[in-house]
Nucleic acid binder design. Structure first.
Length: 190
DNA sequence: AGCGGGATTTTCT
DNA sequence: GAAAATCCCGCTT
């Protein structure tokens, strides 16, 4: 059982993805502090056809091939950013996509950034990036440091972790690497 | 509640 | 030149 963040992130994306459920992201933005809890994740690995790292290291994916604990931000569909936590080991292209978070502190600022309210504020990978002000310049950011820090949260019981296939992909559709907290209303899709 | 299309640009073929 | 780890809106059941 991993007791600190570094050892938790050192495993494979498949192992790390469920362990990140319940972890807390602290974001410093516009002089305010926002805190959110991770409630939905997906694993992507270089051995997996759905992963950006599948075709090897490129300018876009080099952060995925770096050491664990850094942020991989990618731009997609001409208008959206999504963010991932890079997992170990260095030299292996793998990361965990953050698909949904639950506001803990500073929800008002999230709603202003998103121009939305309720679960619609953060129940999707591009939604939460907009709400938290995560964009290209945070690609490669060290998650041990502000303005965006990742910390361990309260542990989640094994029974409350749901595992399914991933969402929004055309290849690798049968790989069951999506994880979410059972019954949590901020999850993007049940 | 569910389906279909449009937005808009980076990345790789 | 096509596809993309998405979201939103409008239309149909």
């Amino acid at each position: 059982m991993a007791s600190d963040l570094a050892s938790l992130l050192s495993g494979s994306a498949e192992d790390v993805a469920p362990r990140l459920l319940g972890a807390v992201l602290t974001r410093e933005l516009n002089g305010e502090t926002v805190r959110v809890k991770i409630v939905e994740t997906e694993a992507y690995d270089q051995t997996d056809v759905a992963s950006h790292s599948y075709r090897g290291e490129t300018e876009r994916t080099k952060v995925m091939f770096g050491p664990a604990g850094y942020l991989y931000v990618y731009f997609t569909y001409g208008m959206h950013y999504c963010c991932n936590v890079v997992t170990g080991p260095a030299g292996h292209g793998a990361a965990v996509l953050i698909r949904a978070v639950e506001p803990i502190e500073g929800e008002a600022l999230l709603q202003i950034n998103r121009k939305a309210t309720g679960v619609n504020t953060t129940n999707g990978p591009a939604k939460l990036c907009q709400a938290l002000g995560i964009h290209k310049h945070l690609n490669g950011h060290d998650l041990r440091r502000l303005p965006l820090r990742l910390e361990l949260g309260d542990s989640i019981t094994q029974e409350s972790i749901m595992q399914t296939t991933r969402i929004g992909i055309a290849k690798g559709v049968d790989v069951p690497w999506r994880f979410y907290i059972r019954g949590n209303s901020w999850v993007s899709k049940v």
